[in-house]
């Protein structure tokens, strides 16, 4: 039986100056599903993801996540909700530059609940970064930084992982490593929403949503 994790109902998003970035989006994402959001540049993929993680708000329509209507959230409520249930991976591998890979992971623990160094270390081990745990981001390669970001996104066992072109800035080899991690997560039943340009990567997902001019044009 499928449990809906995300439900979008008639969601519209306007940016200032009248840019209509998303139009009448109706969408359901189920638990354990790996969804790829695809489409040309400027079609609204990032915008859609930002509505799901609460960094941005819809202009109209309803967004229900884990059965909660997120429209009622204030900024700090969204922050709390996000750190409880959502893990974020960005295209640029944002890490705090003066904290080591391990400390960056522990920071997410700190904001979520309690710092547990052993657990943070296990998260890094899992993505093959344990020998780089005490390196600063500037001492890590792009692929290693992105893996640290994934470890950080996973550390609090989120219900949903949102990734915006997680391999957009990586070479092929690193792209493969990252996708292997995602595949593994998918097998474990992790709900993942991933934005990508790359049809090859899109094929890995359970389901693909195509966007064009802010509209959903196809599901596969």
């Amino acid at each position: 039986m499928k449990t809906p994790v995300v439900i979008l109902d008639q969601v519209d998003k306007y940016y200032p100056k009248g840019v209509h970035a998303l139009r009448e989006i109706n969408l359901q994402i189920d638990q354990g599903e790996w969804t790829a959001v695809m489409g040309p540049s400027g079609s609204g993929k990032t915008t859609l993801l930002n509505l799901l993680d609460g960094l941005d708000r819809p202009t109209s329509g309803r967004i229900e996540i884990l059965g909660v209507d997120t429209n009622r959230f204030g900024a700090d409520e969204w922050t709390v909700f996000r750190r409880e249930h959502i893990g974020l991976v960005f295209q640029q591998f944002y890490l705090i530059p003066y904290l080591t890979a391990l400390e960056n992971v522990m920071l997410a623990q700190y904001y979520h609940s309690m710092v547990d160094k052993k657990q943070a270390m296990r998260a890094l081990e899992r993505i093959g970064l344990s020998d780089r745990a005490r390196h600063l981001p500037s001492q890590l390669s792009g692929g290693e930084q992105q893996r640290a970001c994934i470890a950080r996104a996973l550390i609090n066992a989120p219900k949903i992982i949102l990734a915006d072109e997680p391999t957009g800035n990586l070479d092929e080899e690193n792209e493969k490593t990252v996708m292997d991690i995602f595949r593994e997560l998918d097998l474990e039943g992790q709900t993942i929403v991933m934005v990508t340009h790359n049809p090859e990567l899109g094929k890995l997902a359970d389901r693909r949503i195509y966007l064009e001019y802010g509209r959903v044009t196809a599901f596969h």
Binding site: D53, L55, A75, D76, T79, V80, R82, R83, L88, Y94, I96, L107, A108, Y111, H112, R152
Partner: peptide
């Protein structure tokens, strides 16, 4: 910091 869960 806000994205990974720090309140303002």
């Amino acid at each position: 910091l806000q994205a990974i869960g720090a309140e303002r």
